Amino acid sequence: MFRDRAEAEAYVASVCFKHGPPRLFGVEIEWTVHHRDDPTRQLDAGALAAALGRHAPPTLVPDSPQRPLPSGTPLTVEPGGQVEISTPPRTSLTELLKTVGEDVTQLRNLLASADLVLGERGADPFRPPTRMLRVPRYAAMEHAFEPIGPEGITMMCSTAGLQVCLDFGLREHLNARWAAVHALGPVLNALFANSPGVNGRRPDWASARMRTLYGTDPVRTRPAAGDCEDPAGAWSRRVLDTPVIAIRQPGPNWIPPRPLTFAEWVDGALDRVPTSDDLDYHLSLLFPPVRPRGYMEVRYLDTPPHGRWIPPVVLMAALFSDASVVDEVLAATESVAGRWLTAARYGLADRAVDQAAHAVVEIGCRALDRTDLSMGQAAAVAEDLHRTLAEKSGGVTP
């Protein structure tokens, strides 16, 4: 239990911002799921459960053993039926790519048994958001987001992202890496944007998914302070000042009895004092584009088309392969840091973002030899990155 706000803030800083030699890489990918014969048809929970079989999570099948894939990767399901793989982190980028590739193939094969396929975009362009999972967490989220507007239920049920997980690195490099991962956000979101519209809305946005995230509940979805003297302190204060939207308790109703922030809960607003488990759960209900979880969970990339997930993962790893590369990234992105909505709206049609994207790709390609990829793998990634630039480039906005 927390005696006061300062103790709770210290806990957040200690669990969210861990530093040490950067060693691990992780990847999480989620997809919308569609009937093969008609992607506009509403997804059937029974068909999805049958396809996933013993790998289904308890949120979908309450008595499921949730067996991991052969690699050890668990499958999870998001509120609208999106399926996610969360490959365990690896010290080798080459090994990580191999494992993720095997996981994707395994998942596709499972879904094919029920004539289901993975979506090809970062947002469902066809179907209105419909919540499939009837569990207390998602009921509480929907209750909190609904008064703000339609973006919350859309984010929950109609969007899908590629997440890259990177270590914070040594303490002396933490601030620069935290600033760089945020400054890169608009650039990489634009470069890999893959959600032109979501359930018929905003078809002219390069990343309608990012626009949806931004509008869901700004206090918990806006970017964190990237370039600041004390990232851990700033994040801890934000966490304590964010409203609590779910309290785990017996029964199906996890909605708080009254509106309150976590700081107010610590100060005695409810009939019990929150524990570290309560604070951990509260942390899981914040959804900024970069979420600190003891490592940097990069959440601003749309799920890419089939077969195109490797280049953004490798580029992120290369850009954080050395402190000198991070310094180059900061210099290349300084003029567009914070340009989140412009990048999501126009993609690389925004001239400033386009110029930064070219610089970032060149920096990343030069740093590929700092990874453990073979020369052939590195060359293939560099070719794909330059092809993506060519496909999406051509800045036109001032």
Rank of each mutant, 00 (worst) to 15 (best):
P57A: 06
R23H: 13
C228H: 10
R293C: 04
L24M: 15
V266A: 06
F192K: 03
G169N: 01
H358F: 05
V273Q: 13
Q163S: 14
L162Q: 14
S393M: 05
A378Q: 08
R90L: 06
S195W: 12
P398V: 15
P62L: 08
A234G: 02
P250R: 02
A367V: 08
H182D: 02
V360M: 04
I255P: 02
F25P: 01
R308C: 09
L118N: 02
V61Y: 09
F145W: 12
P136K: 01
N189G: 14
T91S: 13
V100C: 10
W205K: 12
L52H: 07
A269T: 04
P39Q: 13
V15N: 04
L48C: 01
L166M: 00
N194L: 03
R351Y: 04
R237V: 10
V298S: 06
R387S: 13
R366M: 05
P256D: 10
A10F: 00
A56F: 10
H386I: 02
H358P: 03
D277W: 01
L389E: 02
D115F: 03
P128H: 14
Q163L: 07
L52A: 06
H34C: 04
T87A: 14
V33F: 00
R366C: 03
A331K: 11
T212I: 10
Q66K: 09
Q106R: 15
V164G: 08
W340P: 04
T261L: 11
G169E: 00
P128W: 05
V15M: 05
K18E: 14
V135Q: 13
M156P: 10
V381G: 06
V77R: 12
G26A: 06
L174W: 12
L96G: 09
P203I: 10
A8P: 04
A225W: 12
E362T: 13
M155Q: 04
E264H: 08
R308G: 05
L330D: 07
R351W: 05
L111D: 11
E391A: 11
C16I: 03
H282N: 12
A317L: 05
R3Y: 12
G395M: 07
T130W: 08
A337D: 14
R131F: 02
G251C: 00
E328P: 07
W340D: 15
G215M: 05
F287D: 07
R134G: 01
H173T: 00
